[in-house]
Simulated assay, not measured.
Amino acid sequence: MSARAKEVQIDTESMTITIPVGKNPAMILVDPKQGKAKIVPLVEHGETVVKSSQGKISKVDYRESELF
């Protein structure tokens, strides 16, 4: 994942995460197989695409555009 995504700590005992609420739209990606959780910002205009491989999150693609 790019530097845009920010890692969030998973409490492995209770399998929970605490999410800070920001001002911009974002999605939370949780991959229990890898033991990772990240806050991924959504692009203002375009698509944020999550790709997986073998049941794990492998990549996040940002497809941005600009309004004319």
Rank of each mutant, 00 (worst) to 15 (best):
Q54L: 13
Q34C: 06
Q34T: 13
D11L: 03
I19D: 10
K23G: 14
I17M: 15
D61F: 09
T12H: 14
V30I: 10
Q54E: 15
S53L: 11
Q34W: 09
M27C: 12
T12F: 15
E47I: 03
D11M: 03
D61E: 14
I39R: 00
E44K: 09
Q54Y: 03
K6I: 10
T16P: 06
S14G: 10
G55M: 13
P41Y: 11
T12A: 14
V49G: 07
A5N: 11
T12Y: 14
V30D: 09
Q9P: 05
E7R: 03
T18M: 07
V40T: 11
I39L: 09
A26F: 10
P20M: 06
N24T: 11
K56I: 11
R63V: 08
K59I: 03
V30K: 09
D11A: 10
G55W: 13
K56T: 05
Q9C: 10
G46Y: 05
Q54I: 04
E44F: 07
Q9E: 13
P32L: 14
E13P: 08
S14H: 04
I19W: 14
R4S: 04
K6L: 09
T16K: 03
V40S: 08
A5C: 09
L42I: 07
V8S: 12
Q54R: 13
P20Q: 12
I17Y: 13
G22F: 08
S53T: 01
K36E: 05
K36P: 07
V43G: 06
K36T: 03
G55Q: 14
P32G: 07
E66N: 06
V43S: 12
K59G: 00
D31F: 06
E13I: 05
A3R: 04
V49D: 02
V8R: 04
I10R: 04
F68E: 15
G46Q: 02
E44G: 03
V8H: 05
K33T: 12
A5S: 14
K23R: 08
V21Q: 08
H45E: 06
P20T: 11
L42P: 05
P25H: 04
K38I: 12
A3W: 06
I19S: 15
A26H: 07
R63P: 08
